[in-house]
Design a protein around this nucleic acid. Structure first.
Lengths: 227, 227
DNA sequence: CTTGGCATTATGTCTAGACATATTAGCCAA
DNA sequence: TTGGCTAATATGTCTAGACATAATGCCAAG
């Protein structure tokens, strides 16, 4: 194992072996560079990677120490729903159930940072996997981000159109478990009250708030992450 | 905006502005270095960061192109439950409900890659926030990773002991929504069938499989991530 | 005793140049 | 036409040295 990845591996090994226990100060870059016989920049590359991974904490002047409670980070890759379905080996299709301009409820405008009672585009899309309900997408979309003429969301799902056409800058996503509402039960063909995995996303772009979306997944859906 | 972060920002701006649309080949590092008046290494730093973020795709000889469908990545920071609770401004406590060595069910041994019917340490821990049930932790723990004498999980929760004492190498986490089982309903004080957010984690360490754990969260729990 | 400023020091970033490596396009031969 | 070799090329990594920046701790002034 050579190069900066080799150094990263060796430093990680020493941390795991508790040569350098949690909280300990590890040797400076200069010292490590000499020990490994490389330039300081190479050690820096390795330590920077470990810091990004949360294994060590670095501060100027204070040095580098092993993280006390190594925060475990898991990465979630959020695919376009179509690709998610195809990736499971199932045929994809979707139905646009609702598309209208209507005053948004306060919780939605509040989360997006818009004026109360502003009219937003409301889209209800049922995504199908192998002909069966997969996800019910309930979306409030800021019409200001749409071009004129607006795209036809019956042809391209809003989910996919947004990814390729709007510059998404930041956002957050939250997962909850909720009982299926009567409407959800009817549309997805499950009993009311069935436990559904729900993802709520808020997205902001360069031109301001973009969309708030709620994805209610079919029973049994798993959101998988690796760390 | 100076330095490699400034270059990253400018490249990102051009991608967002569709100066360089999805799929397009962007100028090589040498060309960009000359344009911005910096060394090639600085451009490389900026582009490496963008590649890690999934915005561009880089291949030797083939050059750098804008990602067609920018995969959105969200990062989940998995805290120790005690800190999660304290971070919500609530008092933390936990009760060890069960602790015994018993043959593990096949799905568990299979996921951990252990022989069937192997005896594992079974721990059932109820985590409390402000005196109310917060998470029911159901854990199967490979006794091979424990020191002798084994720690007293009635004093330190297994959740916390593992983070600080075992070298966790890799693992995965999955979220599902499930109806509360009769046992869960009883322990957590909810009606059977209530929708619970469940996290299942499998963890492997340097010394082999470590633990399989199921965390059933109290109703209303949100797992929040930022991207 | 407290506060402000300053020197110290470890990390952060940058440069100019070099070599390594992967990949591709094109050429040549079977 | 096809298969394989080769040369060209863009990214990946590294070096040695330099300056920038941010904490820290000490010291002096109040």
């Amino acid at each position: 194992m050579n190069g900066w990845e080799g150094i990263r591996a060796e430093v990680l090994r020493r941390i795991r072996a508790r040569d350098w226990p949690p909280g300990a100060l590890i040797p400076g870059e200069e010292a490590l560079a000499e020990e490994f016989g490389v330039a300081r920049a190479t050690v820096n590359r390795a330590l920077t990677a470990l810091a990004e991974a949360g294994v060590i904490e670095r501060k100027k002047r204070a040095g580098t120490r092993v993280a006390e409670l190594p925060v475990r980070r898991a990465r979630l890759e959020i695919p376009v729903i179509r690709l998610d379905v195809l990736g499971r080996g199932l045929a994809y299709d979707f139905k646009l159930l609702s598309d209208r301009l209507t005053p948004a409820p306060v919780p939605v405008t509040a989360r997006l940072g818009l004026a109360e009672a502003q009219s937003l585009r409301y889209l209800e899309t049922l995504h199908l996997a192998g002909g069966r309900p997969f996800v019910l997408e309930t979306r409030w979309l800021n019409p200001a981000v749409l071009p004129t003429p607006a795209p036809d969301f019956a042809k391209v799902s809003a989910n996919e159109w947004l990814v390729t056409h709007v510059s998404l800058v930041s956002g957050d996503i939250a997962f909850t478990a909720e009982p299926a509402s009567p409407r959800e039960a009817e549309v997805m063909g499950v009993a009311p009250g069935t436990a559904l995995l729900v993802a709520e996303r808020t997205t902001h772009g360069t031109g301001g708030p973009v969309t708030w979306v709620r994805l209610a997944h079919a029973p049994g859906h798993r959101v998988q992450m690796v760390f």
